[in-house]
Design a protein around this nucleic acid. Structure first.
Lengths: 335, 335
DNA sequence: GACATCGTGTAACACGTTTTAATCTATGCC
DNA sequence: GGCATAGATTAAAACGTGTTACACGATGTC
């Protein structure tokens, strides 16, 4: 197809292939005059380097893998945007894999990454099992955990303190005067859900309330707007409206908001509502949603920087487990 | 690092490297017994094929490039999800590039794709200039346009009829009794905006109304919720509220909805409102948003199928320009 | 029993680049 | 002028796989 390779360039420029390679990779080693001559030939011929040949010989690629739990959730999309920006700026390509929370698909992604000999992998893991990652590291592929703390010192991770976030949200509701709180969340196997709930319980205990009676938890199978609306409808039907609702997720919260609205329940008049993630749509809804903000884009950005640092300085790289503190954003839905 | 290659596998299985390669690529050519022996060795050694070496020798990779205009917009995210699902199922990896509407970044993406010798490229182009694509095709890389009709018969494309969509939305507003309509849109250089506006004008003309007087168009620099809210605030301040508003985008519409709500303007009581794209959040907002639905996920899915068909059967592949018809989704915001 | 045929497996080269060690040229120094 | 030195360039050997042409038995046929 293309046909024009490094040696065709060399022929036209009147140098050897090795010199062309040097122009490409260590321009300082070649005399300015020849350098320019080679560059001109490259331009004239429309030469583009064959990445695979380069990777094969050099032993490492300029590619990273990104395995996300749910590409449909704005939270993860923001992470992806941050990662892509940094990677792209540093000359790295990003291979995208959507795991959808499935272990099988996640393993598939990692296998694909391994075949491509990516330089490193960014992953929002679907569970706590770290064995899969060791397979990658045996191949010399660095791994950084995103939105999940690394429980071992030989791994980088970038995450947000979800216990603190849960506490923040609940304390806010308590300060607005609520004494009975409903917590609508997802499957308890998801670490984020478990941590946020635990934060809520801690906040109640700190206020002298017994979590067992003051907090009623509803676990939905999915963390989508549809699930949230269903939870709200069930709540209204039961007739036992709480003073406040804490959703583990803005998607759930937006669904709850809509469910309550349709039933004629006023927010924040009748019920106070707070979500989690502070996605862009939280502020755009008709009653703007109070939420817990996480530095989402930063998560992706910093994770990528850590990853590429680990790849670039394998010797002196110090593994870091970074944990951000979330932030309360009070809006209309909590008065 | 890894160290275990095809010939180590061959040694353990007691065959030649060529046979291992055959087990990997044309299993039917090797006797069942040897095949199993080789497979066992592969499992035992944890061998994973070196994709770059494979690509280099075979002359083509199992990778496609995906260049998106805005990964933050749920519309494009859905497209990406559809593309990733199909590609992954067929054993292809997806390299992600976010162009953000910038020509420079788009060119950067295409260059990266070319270096990686991707098998094909999916692109939501930021403008009508097709020359960049020819560069790729000279390298034997197929291209499929997404959300943009191909104006040439030698290119596949998958898009949605935006003129029809604009007409649909406007006709719906007219049927609800509106006679003066505001159209809030983005930069007119964006094809989608231009087409949707043109559809609106056609609908007015068909109803015997002069577009020049019955349709007032407001062009915002961005198509975000923030821009929509600003447009609504300006509208309220001007005191000249129209009977209906047609936004070129759900993000804009959600912003408008919030702006009107805060100013005490009732939707749909005082003003009817319709958006475009039918993103998930349209139904989740407190007053559910009427919108124009596009088969977003399908767009990504079918584009990928076309692309991989073109790669697989270069000879008999017939280029197709597929255009879907959008669909009206009437909800609360238009009464 | 000789010969063609078929099914399996092999040996060796090729893919396009990077890299190492070696070669060449020019310059400075005694 | 000879020699050492440094800088610029080159030749050639990899990297790990796919593929082509071919060798090897075994089987079937006349």
């Amino acid at each position: 197809m293309s046909g024009v390779g490094i040696k065709e360039v060399a022929r036209v420029a009147g140098v050897s292939p090795g010199t062309v390679s040097n122009v490409l990779n260590r321009p300082e080693r070649v005399a300015p005059e020849t350098r320019e001559r080679v560059r001109r030939a490259i331009r004239e011929l429309g030469f583009v380097r064959h990445g695979s040949a380069s990777t094969l010989r050099a032993g490492h690629s300029r590619t990273i893998g990104l395995s996300l739990m749910d590409i449909g959730n704005p939270f993860f999309t923001d992470v992806a945007a941050g990662a892509e920006d940094v990677a792209s700026a540093l000359g790295y390509a990003v291979i995208l894999g959507n795991s959808g929370g499935s272990r099988t698909k996640e393993e598939h992604n990692l296998r694909v990454f391994a075949e491509h000999r990516v330089r490193g992998v960014l992953i929002t893991p679907s569970d706590d099992d770290p064995r899969r990652l060791d397979g990658l590291r045996e191949h010399g592929i660095s791994v950084v955990l995103v939105d999940h703390p690394a429980y071992r010192p030989d791994l980088c991770s970038v995450s947000v303190d979800d216990v603190a976030g849960g506490r923040l949200a609940t304390r806010h509701l308590l300060e607005r005067g609520a004494r009975s709180i409903h917590h609508i969340t997802g499957p308890p196997t998801i670490r984020q859900c478990a941590d946020r709930r635990r934060g809520a319980e801690l906040a109640l205990a700190a206020a002298g309330l017994a979590p067992a009676t003051a907090l009623e938890t509803v676990e939905m199978p999915a963390m989508t707007a549809r699930a949230g609306q269903e939870a709200a409808e069930r709540l209204v039907r039961s007739g036992r409206l709480p003073e406040a609702i804490f959703c583990a997720n803005d998607m759930l919260a937006l669904g709850v908001l809509r469910g309550l609205h349709q039933a004629g329940v006023g927010v924040p008049g009748d019920v106070a509502l707070i979500g989690y993630d502070d996605i862009d749509f939280a502020v755009a809804s008709a009653v703007s949603l109070s939420s817990i903000r996480q530095p989402t884009y930063e998560l992706g950005r910093i994770a990528t920087e850590l990853l590429l640092d680990e790849c670039g300085n394998p010797g002196e790289h110090a593994h870091r487990q970074i944990m951000f503190q979330p932030e309360l954003v009070a809006r209309e839905s909590t008065g």
